[in-house]
Structures are given as C-alpha cells and as structure tokens.
C-alpha cells in the first residue's frame, strides 16, 4: 500500500473523528452512565468512534465477591451493538445477541478472572451507502456483596 494513497482518506477520517471524539464523552456520560443504575461507576472511561463492521476488544480483570454491571451502548444512528465476553482461554462466556436487555450484563465471579470483551458494530453489507460511524461507550459498575 503506497502511503500517499492513504492521505486523502486519512484526512477525511481525521476530520470527522476530531469533533466526534469530543462529543463521545458527552454521550458516554449522558446516555451510557445512567445504565449502571445502582451500581457504582468505577470511574474508568472507555469510548471510541466505531464504524459499522468494526470491532473493539477490551481486557479487564474482574474480582471475586463483587457484583458487576457491564453497560455497552452505541449512538442511535448505529445499528444495535453486539458484544461477547470470553475467558482468558477464549471460551465464550456470554453474548448479548438474544438478551432481553442487550445493553447491560450483570454478573459476579466466584474467583477473580481476566476477561476479554469483544464489541462489534454490525454492518449491513447489502446497503448501498458508506458505513455509518458513531460513538460506542463501555462502562463498568460494581458493588460489594
């Protein structure tokens, strides 16, 4: 791939990203944070502009004897965000695909574990348009049992 061919697209991508990144924080605080309900937000901030068809991975250790709520939400203009949770050996633990409330997952662990969360913005490949981009926010809440 010749580098000069990347320049126009890279600039275009950057142009839309600059404004969007700043708006992402507002979305995360205003819309995603309330999904944590009566769980205490851990204070970490994970949000990014994702494009339809793009995936993101998150690695985090979760501790025994704590109740956790994971909240993952994309902006309205994006199709419903899918997420899957794997253990450290990449065995699937949870998928939100058939969940009644697909934006949140409540869980607790008998022993502390490092988990991987894969977030995907699905893409309709049959649609005759450029893929949409938007903010996706990932938040964690906890409470002691």
């Amino acid at each position: 791939m010749k580098i000069y061919r990347l320049l126009p697209a890279l600039l275009l991508f950057t142009a839309f990203s600059i404004n969007a990144e700043a708006q992402c924080k507002g979305f995360a605080k205003r819309v995603c944070l309330p999904l944590l309900g009566n769980y205490t937000h851990d204070g970490n901030y994970h949000a990014a502009i994702l494009v339809e068809g793009e995936e993101a991975e998150l690695y985090k250790t979760f501790y025994a004897n704590m109740d956790y709520r994971l909240a993952i939400l994309g902006e309205e203009r994006l199709p419903g965000v899918r997420f899957r949770v794997y253990d450290s050996s990449r065995n699937l633990i949870y998928s939100n695909e058939d969940a009644e409330e697909p934006s949140v997952w409540d869980f607790r662990l008998e022993a502390s574990q490092q988990l991987m969360i894969v977030v995907e913005v699905p893409r309709d490949s049959s649609a005759d348009r450029l893929p949409t981009s938007g903010c996706v926010s990932i938040m964690f809440g906890f409470r002691v049992r």
């Binding site: 970490n44 990014a48 993101a56 998150l58 690695y59």
Partner: peptide
C-alpha cells in the same frame, strides 16, 4: 482504516 482494531486495556 475501519478494520484497524481498537484495543482497550482496562
């Protein structure tokens, strides 16, 4: 560019 995977380490 879109395929570039985002990785968060929390």
């Amino acid at each position: 560019i879109r395929q570039a995977e985002r990785i968060f380490r929390s």
